[in-house]
Design a protein around this nucleic acid. Sequence first.
DNA 1: AACAATACCGGTATAAGTATCCCGCGGGTG
DNA 2: CACCCGCGGGATACTTATACCGGTATTGTT
Lengths: 83, 83
Amino acid sequence: MVRSPLTPEERLRGEQLGHMLRQARGERSIVEVAAAAGMSAETLRKIETGRIATPAFFTIASLADVLGISLDRLAVRTTPART
Amino acid sequence: MVRSPLTPEERLRGEQLGHMLRQARGERSIVEVAAAAGMSAETLRKIETGRIATPAFFTIASLADVLGISLDRLAVRTTPART
DNA sequence: AACAATACCGGTATAAGTATCCCGCGGGTG
DNA sequence: CACCCGCGGGATACTTATACCGGTATTGTT
């Protein structure tokens, strides 16, 4: 197997991440934030709704920067097993 | 075109990110760190050498956690334009 | 010296996934 | 009506993440 499909847990992590980003966006429109982060509104919406489960690091970094939130804060709640 | 190829700048960001991760790894072997982060050694090596320019957020988050470094610190130097 | 083990490197191949655009639907507002 | 926003699905080029291969260098053992 060259790449196993995303597990339901990973999908869930994506949803949680999206939810946090959506909260951080607050009142601002998707269009505005997406433009500020240098991405299309379509993509941002899909990330927020969790349909993109494992977005690229720089994509999230740019978003976090625009939204003024910490990447560490986003990651804390998304750390998977850590057994 | 539905998705433009990665620009040289983006490739460069990937290399810088990889370099920082490699420094953070220090003495530990790739195999050990990769296992701790829940990824294959092949992938970690490619990230460190910059051959994976835009790795997934959770991949980097897990790595940063294992290496004990801040995601924000990684992102600071990698924020692109911010015009 | 010869051999084995460990660690890193670079290329190739491949399934799964991202990031983008396009289209239509519904709701609110001037 | 026209316009803008958000939502969701489909299509698609480009990329990730993985495994396998051989090659190089170092270290330790017999």
